[in-house]
């Protein structure tokens, strides 16, 4: 039982990190990002090339992946979303959904074109395992979990205490109102999308030893983070943390009792059932535009 819980925690930590990024973007920019998995994929490539190609210290690799992800995210916002924002009106949310789908196609095929279809993985960043009360996990997993916890904590403090973080939250509540009090939306959007992509890339880099870098490794992650998001309600950043752990728990239980092959069927069925009872997600109350 304890084993299952710990495995679920280790598994869920990164889901939480991914979901927090996704949720932030949805809450602040009202963007349904379906290229989130591809940003994770890019992160695995960053991690691989920094670690194997340049032989850097793992932590430096993570920071570089975060930075790279941030840059790509910021670029996406400037090149794609800002022209769309100028033109699109009523169907904005669905348009962003389709737009990011197109983006994910481009990123996926682009990496395939550049790096081919081969797997680029590493056995581990840090050798050895960590044992705790009769339970042992590889150091990589534990460190990835710690990173996720630290980053999420920093983000929460950033959002709640810093001036810029508060501005981001203000925009998520009411963009027009925020503009009225002098918040520059453009900057907020760039930073938010950059951060979200940065988190995804960081998660990718940190989990490189578990999922090797190849063009379509983001699909699984994408749907796991969307499951989390839908499960807890869109745009609920705090809930995403719990949701990530919950999904991790669901999958672990399934792997333990039904076998790894059924994990998708099981986790998805549970989520579908939950959605039937609570269409706005577990913690969703006043969800922004649940019908649009």
């Amino acid at each position: 039982m304890v084993n299952i819980l710990i495995t679920a925690l280790l598994r869920g930590g990164m889901y939480s990190l991914m979901a927090v990024g996704l949720s932030l973007v949805y809450g602040v920019m009202n963007v349904a990002n379906f290229a989130h998995g591809e940003q994770y994929m890019l992160g695995t490539y960053f991690g691989y090339f920094c670690f194997m190609g340049l032989g850097l210290n793992p932590f430096l690799c993570f920071i570089l992946a975060l930075g790279g992800g941030f840059f790509i995210g910021a670029l996406t916002e400037v090149v794609i979303f800002s022209p769309l924002r100028k033109r699109s009106g009523r169907n904005w949310l669905m348009n962003t959904f389709l737009l990011t789908l197109g983006l994910s196609m481009i990123l996926k095929s682009g990496t395939k074109l550049l790096f081919g279809n081969s797997y680029r993985g590493i056995t581990s960043y840090f050798k050895g395992t960590v044992s705790l009360a009769g339970f042992s996990a590889s150091k990589d997993r534990v460190i990835a979990f710690v990173i996720a916890v630290v980053v999420i904590a920093v983000v929460m403090v950033f959002l709640n205490k810093s001036k810029f973080g508060r501005a981001i939250r203000a925009v998520s509540m009411d963009a027009t109102g925020a503009q009225l009090v002098g918040i520059k939306l453009k900057r907020i959007y760039i930073v938010t999308f950059g951060l979200s992509c940065g988190f995804a890339a960081l998660a990718g880099a940190a989990l490189l030893s578990l999922t090797p870098a190849y063009p379509s490794n983001g699909t699984q992650v994408l749907y796991a983070s969307w499951v989390v998001l839908i499960l807890v309600g869109l745009g609920n950043v705090g809930g995403s943390i719990v949701g990530g752990i919950l999904v991790g728990l669901l999958e672990t239980i399934c792997i333990q009792y039904l076998g790894a092959a059924w994990q998708d069927v099981f986790a998805l069925s549970v989520v579908i059932l939950i959605l039937l009872v609570k269409p706005n997600g577990l913690f969703g109350k006043g969800v922004k535009s649940s019908v649009e």
């Binding site: 749907y223 969307w226 499951v227 998805l268 579908i272 959605l275 649940s290 019908v291």
Partner: peptide
């Protein structure tokens, strides 16, 4: 469900 929720449901 509507909008993105419905899409995600179909997707799941």
């Amino acid at each position: 469900l509507g909008g993105i929720f419905a899409s995600c449901m179909c997707w799941f």
